[in-house]
């Protein structure tokens, strides 16, 4: 049983240019829209440091020596004390999240793969039929 192979139309140069630009615009949108909306980046918090001496910030003698060698000083961060390590030491990530957000994200990722694999399977059957039944 011979099936006629699918003959794709030839795309004009204009169409090719347009397709390229469309894809580019899509990439830019994905990268810059979260940035533009200020949604990018993970949450951060700062530990309250009452005592900003080395010992007060939980740094032992070895740590202190290495900080100082790297050019840092103890004490609170101020104009005069711009090399203070307090900011680095007190910075922490905020890992709290909403379970609902996690569920939605998981659903999107799994759904995406499911649909892509499913659709690919349909297209793949065409490819195999044409490649192997048509000799």
């Amino acid at each position: 049983m011979a099936k006629t192979p699918y003959k794709p139309p030839t795309q004009s140069l204009l169409g090719q240019t347009f397709d390229t630009l469309f894809l580019l615009a899509l990439v830019m949108a994905a990268l810059f829209i979260p940035l533009y909306l200020g949604l990018a980046g993970g949450g951060k918090t700062t530990l309250e440091l009452k005592d900003t001496t080395w010992a007060g910030m939980g740094q032992n003698a070895t740590m202190q020596a290495q900080w100082e060698k790297l050019g840092f000083t103890a004490g609170p961060k101020t104009e005069e004390n711009a090399t203070s390590a307090a900011e680095l030491i007190s910075s922490r990530f905020d890992y709290s999240f909403e379970p609902v957000e996690l569920a939605i994200t998981a659903l999107v990722v799994i759904g995406y793969f499911f649909i892509v694999f499913h659709w690919s399977k349909k297209e793949y059957r065409d490819v195999i039929d044409e490649r192997f039944n048509n000799k």
Partner: peptide, 28 residues
């Protein structure tokens, strides 16, 4: 947020491919 933005990008790109771009591709 980036994870979701990225997924949206790939989903839109997939739709574009399935319904527009794939017609230019030889099958077998």
């Amino acid at each position: 947020t980036q994870l979701i933005a990225m997924m949206v990008f790939y989903i839109v790109a997939s739709l574009w491919f399935a319904f527009h771009r794939y017609k230019f591709v030889r099958r077998g």
